[in-house]
Design a protein around this nucleic acid. Sequence first.
DNA 1: CCCGATTGAGTTGTGCACAATTGAATTGTG
DNA 2: CACAATTCAATTGTGCACAACTCAATCGGG
Lengths: 160, 160
Amino acid sequence: MGYGFGVANNVPPDAPRLDAPRLDRQVCFAMYSASRAATAAYRPMLDELGLTYPQYLVMMVLWEDQPRGVRELGEELGLDSGTLSPLLKRLESLGYVERRRSAADERRVEVFLTESGTALSARATGIPQRLADAAGLSAMELDQLRETLGRLTAALQAGR
Amino acid sequence: MGYGFGVANNVPPDAPRLDAPRLDRQVCFAMYSASRAATAAYRPMLDELGLTYPQYLVMMVLWEDQPRGVRELGEELGLDSGTLSPLLKRLESLGYVERRRSAADERRVEVFLTESGTALSARATGIPQRLADAAGLSAMELDQLRETLGRLTAALQAGR
DNA sequence: CCCGATTGAGTTGTGCACAATTGAATTGTG
DNA sequence: CACAATTCAATTGTGCACAACTCAATCGGG
């Protein structure tokens, strides 16, 4: 029985190389493909809001609690300032957020929602449901998938 | 019970916006995070081969069967020529592949493994096992995860 | 209080993704 | 056969990711 990460034990006799990694057995490729497919499924909905998927993630964090420092946003999303700084600049030029240097600690930059950014939340409400409908999985499967992926992510990050 | 795509039914009473999408419930964010964590876990191993993860995917397809057209590679991996053309140029400059215009159809470009590219397969053999070890999931969980992600990807791609 | 170490955001450079376009080669149809 | 439609790879432009670095602000030990 395969353990799912692509090692080709029990390969059929016509396999080109007996121990070459097999793409179709790799969980990592399945995650890579699924993640890109999900982003692609979001795209037409997010286009209506003028957002990319990573920008939508940042907005979701801000909709939950606001303002947030760049560093906090990075911790929530696992992104560094090299990714967030230009992304936030684009969100700012879209008029959805404002960046202000913290008075208490001049190193920090606080990200605030504008009125327009706050209002966007209402327009985004239906998006997760529409994705769930397109996913073709039961509620139980989605919950279990999320839980398994969470453990996988934690284990991969721990091993460094 | 939540269905896992982030709709906030049964939110706690202190939630900032009752119907705002909640990041921590989203399967899509879990996939996005897990996929990046997996790529990060691959990175030190692939660094030894001089490959990025997408380059490694292309090499795996070629190790299975060779030569392959750019279009076939794209179908296997779900990537277009805009991604593959520069990637293949880099693999070529690394000396792992060669690109030759097909004589039968001058539009096609066939991608061949070089001797060095073929030899790389042996050095890559252990990588999937090392990833599986780092994943912290049972063989059964990995198999089921791969199967679920496959159905999810297919459903998301079908709805377009 | 001083100064070396740390923290925080931003910049630079590389490599995907992906939309849109280009231009050449081939195919299908009248 | 002619030629419009299609196929195919490559290019251009935008926006992530992420490593490496810069520079200013803050912290902490002596």
